[in-house]
Every structure is written in structure tokens, then in C-alpha cells.
Design a protein around this nucleic acid. Structure first.
Lengths: 337, 337
DNA sequence: TTGAAAGCGTTACCAC
DNA sequence: GTGGTAACGCTTTCAA
């Protein structure tokens, strides 16, 4: 019932190898023969058997992507990575296989050792990520989205979260703010030592300290109660707070909302700068100044690196995307008091 | 370098077929032989080559999931489907291959005809979905999450959105409301004839009409400006509006926010009931009464059906999950005037 | 209870 | 420019 390569060959009156070469382009084929073969393929609706093919080729044209442990579809940033990789992959004829980090390290080995995938992309890297040694020992290439402490020789792409944090501080400081606080990722994100959360916070705190300002910060749950609590806590730490750096895209709308409830106008009474995907800041009211988190770009880049490695070309071990500030209406000079 | 089945056999001092039978369990094996083989497998770290295996077996233990055309990671509901299917699949030793609807119908045929997957799950079904005839002609099973107009004989699972809409109306009407409006999915969701959007709206409007109330509704973009505009429009349609049905999970926080800005208190001046995943309603302030959208349950169910079909057991063609109302603080009787 | 050997569908080497 | 055919790694019939 399923149509095989030999069926195509028979119908076209050529040998199986000729059909194979028409398919792969690994050998010159006369125009006439090619035409007959392609016609035969089309008429029979032939698709090469991927499994059979993968025995002889050394590849499957499938790559695996390892999702974060706690992925639940809530974090749109995580999903932007997935979609960016997915689109890049599909555009190049690759398929994407999804793995969850819960499966643990064993599953990465499994799909690779069973020759199901040509490579692996791993996201949401922890500073001391247990998957790193596994990836390094793999006999297939891997690319990390994120930077572990011991990345040496493991190809990874990342956003410069420390510089992004510092840039937020600089912007607000330049505007005249001297009391700047940071509302950061949820506590459990810090608990699992996610690199992006730690580096962004440290970038902010370091820059605050360097400029002689108080390192005021707090993690926040991305819901109204969590945000209200966090903001109250920040004011407790520094009652003169006049500017907020928000690196918590899900909480951002609730932050604006809460400030409004508290009667603090943005940017008059409180300046706000966010680190988040641009489209999540620009459609709020007021539109929020942000250091754009290039999730789609990182995902695309990660796949590009992986394909490069698969095809055997050397890739830069480390790529750090530089932050860029989008000025909007949410940050201005502090009110004279 | 990669370890093969024959390597395992040699090391265990048995024939390849014996190793195969140990793996598949298709033949009785003496305890002693089994022990030696398993030891050999473990020591060599052997994993059967998935491709080679799939030639002889008729299956790959991979299923494909076709994502919505416009998936961008923003809609958490879509992602909950994906994660539900992913977790169910991984729990049963299946891998999940992601396809985007943009690839078009051809790509579904491709992965199936190339024997890459054992079955397909398709989500975000349109009422007149062009993929339906393709899925029906496939020689592998397919399961839809959603209901097309011509579903006959195609296994599908869905939430009863019409009943959910009606239930919202009923709840508000029972509380005493006579001026009820619906803030619905974005216009482009209607434009692409997404079944869930149409059915929920029609369920609401039908029930409103049946109860002699005005069928007031409006689509809304899920951002502050879109929501503000939609609410203004609803008040334009019915200045006495005292209750809102929101089926637009991304817009829901902005709705509460906007009502607050307008000085309308919830539920005093305006009752709100949502159709959305429960966790997106319960953590708002005030916590929002909802008809819970069982995305995770639907995803899990879809995979269950698909595995059933793959293993050759008949499955119910249609499964419609009944709505259930969670009463919270956002809906109450209308203020006496 | 086990082994030998014939496939499975595709690729690529070796001939011509 | 094209064809024959031996692999690839595994499963399963057939035989013992």
C-alpha cells in the first residue's frame, strides 16, 4: 500500500538508484530522466521513508528542543523561543521534537542515541546546569539558549542580561532618579538559579552600587496580589522610590495597574522601565520604555548555530546579543519635591 | 562508534534475534539469557536505532501536533493544549513533533507519508477547516481539538463553548441582570472562523435572545487600548449594561483595570464572568467567576484518543466536555437604581 | 529456548 | 548519464 522508491523507479522505467539521485541531487541527471522520475513521484505521491533514509544518511533532519522544567504555557517568553526555533527549523526543512526537562537528562541521551535527532537545543539554562556535562558528552551537537557557568566549548547564545539591567539603571539615573528599585522574576525562578534572572538582577544591583545608589530589589509573583505585595515591600526598603525597573513580563501590566491604584502616576510620580519582549511593553498604557528582550532573534540564532554545527562548520562558542533601549512615555525626570 | 544490536548480542554471547526478542518481549526468554542481555545493553549503553526499527515495525512512537496558524506564544490557552499533549505523550513513551499550520496541508501529508509519525493531533479547528478532508484521507489516525462543521467520522474532542456561553448568561440573569454584554475574542479570530470563538459567542447571543435580552457583544484586541475601546462600544450599545461576559483571557486583566479606571466597581457596578482557564481568573483582583476552560484536560484527552486509534481500538467520534461554573467575587446582583 | 537468515526501504559505491 | 547491488540496523519467519 505505501508507495516505495522502487515503485517510482519501475513506473519511470529507471533504476532505484536513479530515483535516489534525482531526490538527493548527488549526481547529474539528464533533463528527460529527471522529468520522468519527478512525474512518477508526483503521480504516485511518493514520500521517502524517513526511517529507512536515516539508516543510510547519518541524519534525520529532526532536532530536539528541551523545554524548561516548569513550562506551562504561561510564560510567553519561553514560547517565543520555541516558536522562533520552530519557524527557523521548518523553514529549512527540519522538524522539531519537543522534550521536557522533567524527563531529565536521560531523555536527551535517549533521543540522541537512538538517532532520532541530529542535534539538541536547550533553553532556560541554570548557572550550574546538570545538563551541561550530558550535552558535552553527546555525540551530536547541542546549542544552549542561555549561559551556564562552565560553558567552555559548548556553543551557546544569550542576551546580555547584565548589560540590559545596567542600561536600565543608567537611563533612569541619567533622567535624574536617585531612588531606583527593581521588581524582578518570581522567587522560584531565582531558586532554580536561572541564569537570566540572576544576571539581570546582578546587572542592576551592580550598576546601582557603582553609582552610589541603594540596591533595592524584590522578586514578584506575576499576579495582582504578588505585585501589590512586592511594590509595598520596595517602598518599605526605600520610601523615596521614584523609578522602577521591571524584569517580569507577566507582572508588568499588574505593576502599572497597582501604581494607578496607589495614585502614583506614570511617569510623573514613578518612572517605569521594563526588560521584556517589546510587544509586551509597547501596547500598555502608558506605553512602557523597555530594553527589548530579543527572544525570537535568540531562538532563530540558536537554530542557525545548530545547523552550522550539524553541517560540520565551526561556530562561535559564545554569542551575546547587546541590549537596546526603546524610549517611550513611561520614564521621565523625577518630580521636583 | 555507535553501539548496535549485534554488539550487544556478541558481548552477551547470544544471537541478534535473541537480543531483539528480549527488547520486544515477543518471545519467552530464559531468565539467565535475559539477564546477560540486559547487562550487556546496560554496559554498552545500547539504544535501538529508531529509524531502523521503524522500517520493520509499523510505528515510530512519534505523534505530530499541528499548531494554529497564528501561534506566537502569546495565547496561553493554545500553549496549555500543547503542554497537555506533550506531557501525556512523554508519559507514554511517545515523542511529539511540532508542525505549524502555515506549512499548510502538504506538510501533514509529508510527515505521515514519510512514516515519521503514527498519528496527528490538530488544534484550533475552523468551522470549515481545509485540513479536514486531508486528515480524513490520511492513512494514519488523526484527532481534532475542536469541531469542524463536517466532523463526521473524524475523532474530535471539544469543550462545549455554546453551553459555556449560555451558562454565563444564565448565571448573570439569575442574579438579576437584564443588561448583559459580551466582550469576545479578537476580530481576526472570528475572521478565520475559529470554532471556539463563534460557538461561544453564538451560545451567549442565543441565550440572551431566548431570555428576551439584547444581544450585545463586541470583539476586542487583548491590550489596554483595544479593551477600552471595546468597553466604550458596549456601553454605546447598551448604556445600562450591568454585567460583562468576557471570553478573551488575555484581555481579562485589562477589563478589570479599565472598569476600575472608569470608576465602575466589580461586582457592585459591574458583574464580570469569564470563560477562561481557571488559573487566569482566580488570581485576579477581584477573583473572577468563570466557566473554566479545560485546556489541559482536552489536550490529554486528545492524545488518549489518538493512542487508542493507533492501537486500533475504536474511539468515540465526538466528545464534548461540559462547562462548569466557578463562583467567585466578581459577579453579584445588580445595584438597585 | 535459541539461532540463521531473509527481509524492510533507501543510499552510495562500483561498474559500464 | 545510468544501473546493479551491497550495505545500513533491526525484526521476524523458519528451523532446530
Amino acid at each position: 500500500m505505501p508507495v516505495r522508491l522502487v515503485d517510482v523507479a519501475r513506473r519511470a522505467g529507471v533504476s532505484p538508484s536513479t530515483v535516489s539521485y534525482v531526490l538527493s541531487g548527488n549526481r547529474p541527471i539528464s533533463a528527460e530522466t529527471r522529468r520522468r522520475v519527478e512525474e512518477s513521484i508526483a503521480e504516485l505521491g511518493f514520500r521517502p521513508h524517513a526511517g529507512a533514509r536515516s539508516i543510510r544518511r547519518q541524519s534525520t533532519n529532526v532536532v530536539a528542543m528541551v523545554l524548561p522544567m516548569f513550562a506551562d504555557g504561561q510564560s510567553s517568553v519561553q514560547m517565543q523561543f520555541v516558536f522562533a526555533v520552530l519557524h527557523a527549523a521548518r523553514a529549512q526543512g527540519y522538524n522539531l521534537l519537543l522534550l521536557t526537562a522533567e524527563d531529565g537528562v536521560a531523555e536527551i541521551n535517549n533521543v540522541v542515541n537512538s538517532a532520532m535527532v541530529d542535534g539538541v537545543i536547550v533553553m532556560e539554562i541554570q548557572v550550574n546546569d546538570p545538563r551541561v556535562p550530558v550535552l558535552r558528552a553527546l555525540d551530536r551537537p547541542a546549542v544552549l539558549i542561555g549561559t551556564p557557568d562552565d560553558a567552555e566549548s559548548l556553543v551557546h547564545v544569550d542576551f546580555d542580561f547584565a548589560a540590559a539591567g545596567a542600561m536600565c539603571v543608567q537611563h533612569l539615573h541619567d533622567l535624574g532618579h536617585r531612588h531606583i528599585g527593581m521588581l524582578a522574576q518570581p522567587a522560584d525562578t531565582f531558586a532554580r538559579q536561572a541564569g537570566f534572572a540572576l544576571r539581570a538582577r546582578d546587572g542592576v544591583l551592580q550598576e546601582l552600587t557603582d553609582r552610589g545608589l541603594n540596591p533595592t530589589w524584590i522578586p514578584a509573583q506575576p499576579n495582582p496580589a504578588g505585585v501589590a505585595e512586592a511594590i509595598e515591600e520596595l517602598f518599605g526598603q526605600d520610601p523615596e522610590l521614584s523609578a522602577l525597573i521591571v524584569y517580569n513580563e507577566l507582572a508588568l501590566p499588574f505593576v502599572l495597574d497597582r501604581l494607578r491604584q496607589l495614585g502614583r502616576r506614570v511617569p510623573g510620580d514613578m518612572s517605569v522601565v521594563a526588560i521584556c519582549p517589546d510587544d509586551q511593553a509597547q501596547h500598555l498604557l502608558p506605553a512602557v520604555s523597555d530594553v527589548a528582550l530579543p527572544a525570537a532573534e535568540l531562538g532563530r540564532l540558536a537554530f542557525e548555530r545548530l545547523v552550522g554545527l550539524i553541517s560540520g562548520t565551526d561556530q562561535p562558542v559564545s554569542t551575546l546579543l547587546e541590549p537596546h533601549l526603546n524610549r517611550r512615555g513611561s520614564a521621565g525626570p523625577p518630580l521636583r519635591r
